[in-house]
Amino acid sequence: MSNPIPRISVVIPSYKVTRHILGVIAGIGPEVSRIYVVDDKCPDRSGQFVREQCSDPRVVIIEHAENQGVGGAVMTGYQAAIAEGVDIIVKVDGDGQMDASLIPDFVAPIVNGEADYTKGNRFFDLEQINQMPAIRLFGNAVLSLLTKLSSGYWDLFDPTNGYTAIHVNAARHLPLHRISKRYFFETDMLFRLNTINAAVVDVPMDASYGDEVSNLKISKIVTEFMAKHLRNFGKRIFYNYYLRNMSLASIELPLGLAMLLGGGGYGIVHWLQSAHAGTATAPGTVMLSALPVLMGMQLILAFLAHDIASVPRRPIHRMTRARAKAPARATLPE
C-alpha cells in the first residue's frame, strides 16, 4: 500500500511585508493545502491587507493583539496547524527572500523519513554566497559555531536561516511556549529539537537579497546571543548527559575541566611567584602544571568527539503517534 499524500501547511509571519506578501502567497504551489498568515500586530495591518487583496481559499488570517516577535508569530502558526491536523508545517518569511518553489525540497527529507525538521543553508554553493554582505557572512560563521555548541547539531550551518519545515509529530513534542519569541527563535528551536532527539538536516538554497529591509542586525546580536547560547549549552549538557542519560562522556567533561583549570591555575600562581622572586620555575613545578592541563584537554576533546558522534539521526516522528505531549516533558526546568 502506498503512503498517503501528506497534508502540507505554510506559516507566514507578517510584519511590515505588505509590499511582498501577496507575491509570496501567489508563489506557493498546489502541494500546500493551508497557508497561515500571522499578522504580528503589524502597523501596516498586513492581515487585513491580505484579507482584502487575496482570494486564495487556502489562506487563513491570524491576528495578534500584541506584537510577539517573529518567533511568537511562528509558534502561533504552529499551534493553528497542529490543531487543524496537518502533517508538515513549512515556515516562509513574507518579505520575498525565500523561493516558495523550494517547498518540496524542504518537505522531501521529512516525507522520506530522513528528518523531523529541515532548514535552509545558504552556504552550500560557494559561488552563490558572494551575494551575501560581508558582515552577514562573518556573523553567520560566528553564530553557526555557537549554535553547534549550544544545540548539539554539529553538521548544520547557517543557523539564522528561517526557511524551515517540521513534521507535526515533532512539533507536538516541543515546548512551544518556551521557545524564544524574538530573533533567537531559529537557534532556540534547534536546542529544543535536540532535547527530544529530533533528526535535523540542512537543505541547500541560494542567498537572495532584494529591496526588502531586514530588522536583523548581525553586528548587534552576536554579543546578545552569546549569553543565550551559553545558557542553552549548559541546559543541553545537563539534560543529555546527566538528567536523561549517563555515559563515559558525563565524567570526561567535568574531570577534564577540573584538570585543565586546576593545572592552569597552579602553573600561573607559581609562575607569578617565580617572576616576582626573579628565579626560574622549577622543572617539577612545570610538569605538575603541564600534565593535568594536557590530560584535561584530552578529556575535553574526547567529550567533544562523543558529542559530535551523538547528533540525532533517527527521525522521531515515525516512532511517535499523533497525541498530546506527555506531562513529564512539561516538568523540565526552564
Rank of each mutant, 00 (worst) to 15 (best):
D87S: 06
D99F: 12
R19G: 12
H64Q: 04
A134P: 12
K220M: 10
G96Y: 02
P283A: 07
F49M: 08
V70A: 03
R45H: 14
Y153G: 09
R192Q: 15
Y239S: 12
K235C: 05
V293E: 11
G210R: 07
A115V: 06
H306I: 00
R244V: 05
V10P: 01
D39E: 05
M98W: 12
I12Q: 00
R329F: 13
L301P: 01
P43G: 02
S33Y: 00
M297K: 03
S151V: 01
G96T: 05
A199N: 05
A134M: 13
D155P: 01
R45W: 10
V24E: 02
V32H: 01
N161F: 04
L257K: 00
V59C: 02
P30T: 09
D99R: 10
S214V: 00
H177D: 14
G278L: 04
V293R: 11
I82E: 04
K220D: 13
F157S: 15
R136P: 09
P159C: 03
S144V: 13
I5L: 07
V111L: 05
P133M: 12
N161S: 11
A100D: 07
G85D: 04
T76D: 00
M189L: 15
P312E: 02
S250N: 00
T285L: 10
A322Q: 11
A326E: 15
L272M: 15
S151A: 14
M189C: 09
H20Q: 08
L332W: 13
M132F: 11
H20I: 01
E127H: 15
P109T: 10
G85M: 00
R178K: 14
A83T: 10
D99V: 08
N215S: 14
D95C: 01
T18M: 09
Q48F: 02
T223P: 13
G27W: 07
F123I: 10
